[in-house]
Amino acid sequence: MTTIRAFTCDDLFKFNNVNLDPLTETYGLPFYMQYLAHWPEYFQVAESPSGEIMGYIMGKAEGQNENWHGHVTALSVANNYRRLGLAGSLMHNLEEISENKHCFFVDLFVRVSNQVAVTMYEKLGYSVYRRVLEYYSGDVDEDAFDMRKALSRDKEKKSVVPLPHPVRPEDLD
């Protein structure tokens, strides 16, 4: 029992329970507003019956030609609402939206250490396309997996053929 609906500015006041998770970054307002202004349909929130925010997904569509794809910028679910398949539903919606936009694939970045997330994405049909070196900055920089899932438009699944070598963040297209 989850209401998935469009994220609105007012949700920013109450998403603390989700964002206090250490792997969920709280960005400055311009970051959220940029997404709300540009890709409002890609920013969705899951709400519990009591009005609590259970989690949210933030994404966009970008790229040229065969690189036209949906991208998951942030996906986070509050501790109390994990293991309900919520992340899966939110991802599924994002894929649907990307299908509607005739994207070729959906991609996302995840910390290589975040095994739980990597396994979950694999279950949802994502595979590691390439490794991005020192993508996450912190006390110790951490690599990211760039994971992808082909959509129906990419019939031969060309977009998900893994790259043999890791890339540096500045070489990302």
Binding site: S48, P49, S50, E52, N79, N80, Y81, R82, R83, L84
Partner: peptide, 12 residues
């Protein structure tokens, strides 16, 4: 019962 939100759900 094994989900962390079970009691929250039943609260109402």
């Amino acid at each position: 019962g094994t989900k962390p939100c079970c009691a929250t759900d039943l609260k109402a």
